[in-house]
């Protein structure tokens, strides 16, 4: 369970989040929508621990643990995963090697044994097949020269492998073609689990037809300004954000 209470965050003296409060329960899929610049990516970065953001007030608890005290890699090992809106490229580091390094580092932090190479390869291949990622891509430098959609799929592949208990998807649907959107959604749905929660950031109702959310939250000006069920997304699709922009201001 993730609990965010009264979160105030600024970057370079610019206030981005203004007392945001949000709870996502185990097994829940929460969708966040909201206009460009409302602070959705900022929220995901702050949860994951990106440097440079200053938390002025509030708290973030993951299963009762204060994540603000943890380094980003410790948060990852504690089960927090962020699928980036813009995944980074790591030239010269084969995707397979990267995955293995990530997997074993997390295990080490948790005091677990390294995974046997054969088992690991098998797991990667299975996950890649499920997401329609060709094997030869796993030998290429991570995300180097990957298309926008391929990068997003690779994020989901990593999520599937690392099996986190709290997943944030920041606009994973943008850049995906219609077929890829289906494949990725199926990948995410396959990971839905009573012990796992998701925070899905998106601009489009379409994604939510595939990944049906339990709750929908509208963000504006760094706050959650309205929450509701999945029908709220449909409503937004029809009306836009005009009401909310003025509401918070």
């Amino acid at each position: 369970m993730l609990e965010i209470r009264n979160l105030h965050v600024s970057i370079e003296d610019k206030k981005i989040l203004n007392g945001l409060t949000l709870t996502v329960h185990d097994g829940e899929v929460a969708a966040i929508m909201g206009p460009n610049g409302s602070g959705k990516s900022t929220l995901s970065y702050v949860i994951a621990g990106k440097p440079d953001y200053e938390v002025l007030d509030g708290e973030i608890l993951l299963d009762g643990q204060n994540v603000l005290e943890l380094e980003p890699h410790e948060r990852a090992a504690a089960g927090l995963f962020l699928a980036f809106q813009y995944p980074l490229e790591i030239p010269g580091v084969a995707t397979m090697s990267f995955l293995k390094a990530a997997m074993n580092s997390q295990r080490k932090i948790r005091g677990e044994e390294e995974m046997a190479t054969a088992d690991f390869m098998k797991a990667v291949r299975a996950a890649a097949d499920g997401l329609g990622i060709p094997q030869d891509m796993l030998r290429r430098g991570l995300n180097v020269g990957f298309s926008g959609g391929e990068k997003k799929r690779m994020e989901i592949l990593q999520m599937a492998l690392l099996a986190p208990n709290f997943c944030i998807l920041d606009e994973t649907d943008s850049g995906l073609d219609i077929d890829a959107l289906k494949i990725v959604s199926e990948g995410v749905n396959a990971l839905r689990d009573p012990k796992r929660a998701f925070l899905v950031i998106t601009h489009y109702q379409r994604l939510l037809n595939y990944i049906v959310p339990d709750s929908v939250h509208v963000m504006a000006h760094g706050q959650v300004v309205k929450s509701g069920g999945k029908e709220l997304a449909l409503e937004l699709e029809a009306t836009g954000y005009a009401d909310y922009k003025t509401l918070a201001a």
Partner: peptide, 19 residues
């Protein structure tokens, strides 16, 4: 890049060595 690697569980030294 460092943050991305860290988000996947690598500490800053491991991330630098990898890059």
């Amino acid at each position: 890049q460092l943050f991305y690697c860290q988000q996947r569980g690598l500490n800053p030294e491991e991330a630098t060595a990898l890059i």
